[in-house]
């Protein structure tokens, strides 16, 4: 039965119609934003991209540590409580052929900004065995303090150990090296096992050593990673400068991750090498593998990687040529 005419009904119907049709007439919430890309998971295996140049920021992207007269190389980094990271670099001697090298420390919240704590010397070569040479730091946060493994010595290159309880500003060194005949360390700790990766003078490849306390080490009988010798491989003639991390994922499972520098060909005399960064990983520290074909995770020229995986982001520091000097740069994933 038809209803009696009622203006309120007509008004209600008109209101409903207007509300319903408004979006179709372009009165909706049209916008140009699109989502679905935020905070995707990553294991830190990259691929990494160098920080893009941004003229609007005070930073000199992609460089984090650069200088007109000094070389900065072989970085390391650890997360900083409260955000950002603490980083260490090798300050090579400005005097050739060889002078004292030092390990400097800085801290930064956002690599697109200026450092909160500018670079300053943190470790100098004050031990006899170091022979004026400290370099290539690897820093591990074991939960209570920072533990640094570093390269020292010239006639017998070795790896030394130092600890810091003030965020890396000051260090207490062990009196003697913990690994002799080894250099360029990368070290990680899974709560029970210390694992070190390093290279050895005069021998190819990246070697591993294991320890229960980070002081006494047992070196594997053979290198874990060797140059492939395969044509067009980014690691055909050399691998080195490993960085190790124990990455605990959201499922509670962890794995050992290793980033390293690979070299396709040796440079001509007077040229700089053009390494690229590779990646391997292992659940048990014994069997190491890649995902897919062996490709770099950061294109050349980039060497001496150091990586921090924090949630859905990974930050990789590398060294490479910046003008006439070597500098430490930043690459990220994603």
């Amino acid at each position: 039965m038809p209803a009696r005419p009622r203006a309120s009904h007509a008004r209600a119907a008109a209101a409903v119609a207007v509300l319903a049709l408004a979006p179709a007439c372009g009165i909706g919430f049209a916008d140009d934003t699109s989502g679905g890309h935020d905070d995707l998971p990553t294991s830190g295996a990259g691929p990494f991209g160098r920080l893009p140049v941004d003229e609007t920021t005070p930073a000199d992207e992609p460089w984090l540590a650069t200088d007109r007269t000094l070389d900065f190389t072989e970085p390391a980094l650890v997360a900083r409580a409260g955000g950002g990271f603490v980083y260490f670099v090798t300050r090579e001697s400005p005097d050739l052929p060889v002078g004292d090298s030092e390990i400097w420390r800085g801290a930064i919240r956002d690599p697109r900004q200026l450092p909160d704590e500018p670079l300053a010397p943190a470790v100098i070569a004050d031990q006899v065995w170091e022979e004026g040479h400290v370099a290539a730091p690897a820093v591990v946060d074991d939960g209570a303090r920072l533990v640094m493994f570093y390269e020292g010595g010239l006639t017998t290159v070795s790896i030394g150990r130092a600890v810091s309880s003030d965020g890396g500003r000051t260090w207490q060194k062990d009196p003697a090296p913990v690994l002799v005949g080894a250099r360029a360390p990368g070290v990680a700790f899974d709560g029970a096992l210390w694992l070190a990766a390093f290279t050895r003078p005069g021998e190819d490849g990246i070697w591993l050593a294991r320890s229960g306390d980070g002081v006494a080490w047992v070196v594997d009988a053979a290198p874990t990673l060797v140059p492939t010798g395969v044509e067009d491989s980014f690691e055909r003639v050399a691998v080195g400068s490993p960085w190790l991390a124990w990455v605990v994922e959201s499922t509670g499972r962890g794995h050992w991750a290793m980033w390293y520098a690979g070299l396709e060909k040796f440079p001509l005399e007077g040229d700089l090498p053009r390494p690229a960064v590779g990646y391997v990983a292992s659940f048990d520290g014994m069997a190491w593998g890649r995902s897919g074909a062996p490709r770099p995770v950061l294109a050349a020229p980039a060497g001496a990687p150091a990586v921090l995986v924090s949630g859905p982001r990974a930050t990789l520091l590398f060294d490479g040529p910046a003008g006439r000097r070597l500098a430490v740069g930043v690459a990220t994933h994603p």
């Binding site: 994922e249 499922t251 990983a281 995902s291």
Partner: peptide
């Protein structure tokens, strides 16, 4: 694979 670029997730 331990080397998976994305890794485990929930």
């Amino acid at each position: 694979l331990a080397a998976d670029p994305v890794g485990d997730y929930r």
